[in-house]
Structures are given as C-alpha cells and as structure tokens.
C-alpha cells in the first residue's frame, strides 16, 4: 500500500498541456515521459523538463526504469541537436537538464552527439546553464573528454543504488565501481565542474549501505547528492521494498550535509533534475 505522501498536486493543467504540445511539435523525448515521472505536473507546470537525447530506446534494461529497451543499430537523428536547441529557446529555459539513453551500439556511446547537443543549446541560448546527466559510456575516457569539452556547467551520473543491490537492480553492463569511476574521472578532467549523483531508496538497502554509498560518492568528489524514493514504474519492474517517510529523508539530508556534500536534495519525490536550477544558483553564488 502506497503511503499518503506520494501525492502530487496538479494545479496548472493548461501549462502542462502546452509543454506537451511544444515537446511533441519538436519531436523531443523527455525522461519525464519515459520514466512516467510523478513530477510531470509540477515540473512541466513550471515549464521545465529533462530532455532525453539519442532517441528513446535504451540498449540496457535496468529493473527500476521504464524506458524502452532495444538495439537502435547505430542510428542517430542528426536533426535532434537543433530541435532541442529550438525548443529550449522557445521555452525560454535558463537551466537545461539533458540526459540520454545508453547507446552501447555506438562506438563512442553517443558522446559526439552529446557534445553536439550541448553546443547547439549553448549557441541558441548563450545564457542558459546546462546540466548533463550522462551514461557511463562503458568507461571510455575519451567519450567523457568529448562531452566535457562541450562545456556543460554540471555533470551528473547516477549511482542509483547501493553496492550490494547494483547487480540485481541495474543492467549487467552497469556497475557500482564503473559509476564511481565516471564521477571521479569527470572531476579529474574538469575540477571546476559541479558533479551530481542520485540514489533511489526503498529498494531493500540498509541504512549502513546507504551511508557507505554516500561515503563512496564523496570520495569520488561528488558535490550534489540527490536522494529519492524508488517508485515502481510498472508491474514487471523491481517491487518497492519500503517507503521511507519524509522525516527519514530529512534526517538523511542532514547526515549527508554533515558528511560533506555541498548540496543535498532529499525527499520522497526528489529526482536528479528536481530543484536543479535552485541548487546550482545556491552553489554558484555561495
């Protein structure tokens, strides 16, 4: 039984529908849509969305995620960068979150396309802050270099869950160590960049395992931590083991700040892009 706090108020349906119309007209994918994110009414109502690039078919299949799995066979839409840039400009976004599916079918994992999208967005909206929530690129350092050279302001990569549960929850090609490596490598390549990572809680992890994962993320130089409740996107996905209360999230937030993260976003409906612009402003002004 889902607790009462997993509730979202829908106040501005017209703005949500307008956002839906703009995204459809530009033929853009969002992770909000693919992941059936409960924050859609809230975020789209405030005209923000997380664009998902490189198509909507992921080469990996994680047990927490609703995105379609397949093998796109190396196909990439060359018009996507311009369409995204146009949509960002039309929406007047000052903070843009980009993410992508995993593209193990491409030799560079899609890094060149990533760099192209970031460059187009920055060209069309020079004032916009760009956050890139990237895949692991199978640990290819050259791919990370390509993305970073395009100049994103924030780079996120999600650890998703604790070490013990990773093989059960994430695709076999993903790994706990590889994700930490990605975060560390981003900091090495560009020490000034803000890095960010998320953990989904309620998958069966213990409090001690969460603390260890937070230590590992700090060790990897992560600046911003996001902690949210795992919500099953469909009956064929991993079940929710436990719902953490809003109070538990507040305690975890305090603990993470004490441990040394520069910013922490924690709450039942917190997701990587949730409050992203606000946190960036706080950190870049402080």
């Amino acid at each position: 039984m889902r607790p009462g706090w997993i509730r979202v108020e829908v106040s501005d349906v017209d703005t949500v529908r307008r956002m839906d119309e703009i995204l459809s007209r530009h033929r853009l994918h969002t992770v909000c849509w693919s992941a059936r994110c409960p924050n859609i009414p809230r975020c789209w109502g405030a005209s923000t969305a997380t664009f998902m690039i490189l198509g909507d078919v992921c080469t990996r299949s994680c047990r927490f995620c609703a995105t379609k799995t397949g093998w796109p066979g190396g196909r990439v839409d060359p018009e996507e960068p311009e369409r995204i840039a146009r949509a960002v400009a039309e929406l007047g976004l000052s903070y843009v979150v980009l993410t992508s599916v995993d593209r193990d079918d491409l030799p560079d994992g899609g890094a060149a396309h990533w760099a192209w999208v970031i460059a187009e967005v920055k060209r069309a909206s020079p004032e916009a802050v760009v956050e890139a929530l990237i895949p692991d690129f199978s640990g290819k350092r050259g791919s990370l270099e390509t993305v970073i050279s395009a100049g994103p302001h924030v780079v996120g990569h999600n650890l998703e869950t604790v070490r013990r549960l990773t093989p059960r929850i994430r695709d076999p090609r993903a790994s706990y160590e590889l994700s930490l490596w990605v975060l560390k490598a981003v900091k090495e390549l560009s020490p000034g960049i803000l890095t960010k990572s998320s953990l989904l809680l309620g998958l069966g992890e213990t409090a001690e395992e969460v603390r260890l994962a937070m230590e590992d993320l700090l060790e990897a130089g992560v600046d911003i931590l996001v902690l949210g409740q795992y919500l099953r996107p469909g009956p064929d996905k991993a079940p929710v083991a436990r719902y953490l209360s809003p109070e538990e999230f507040r305690e975890l937030e305090e603990e993470a700040l004490r441990m040394g993260f520069r910013a922490v976003v924690a709450g039942p409906l917190a997701r990587t892009s949730f409050r992203a612009a606000e946190v960036y402003r706080e950190l870049s002004c402080g």
């Binding site: 009462g4 509730r7 979202v8 108020e9 349906v13 059936r36 919500l231 099953r232 469909g234 009956p235």
Partner: peptide, 11 residues
C-alpha cells in the same frame, strides 16, 4: 497511477 496519486484541482 502506478507511481503516485495525483490531486486534480478545479480549473
């Protein structure tokens, strides 16, 4: 829905 409850407000 599968993930959450949505409260619909009067327009």
């Amino acid at each position: 829905a599968e993930k959450a409850t949505f409260v619909i407000e009067a327009p």
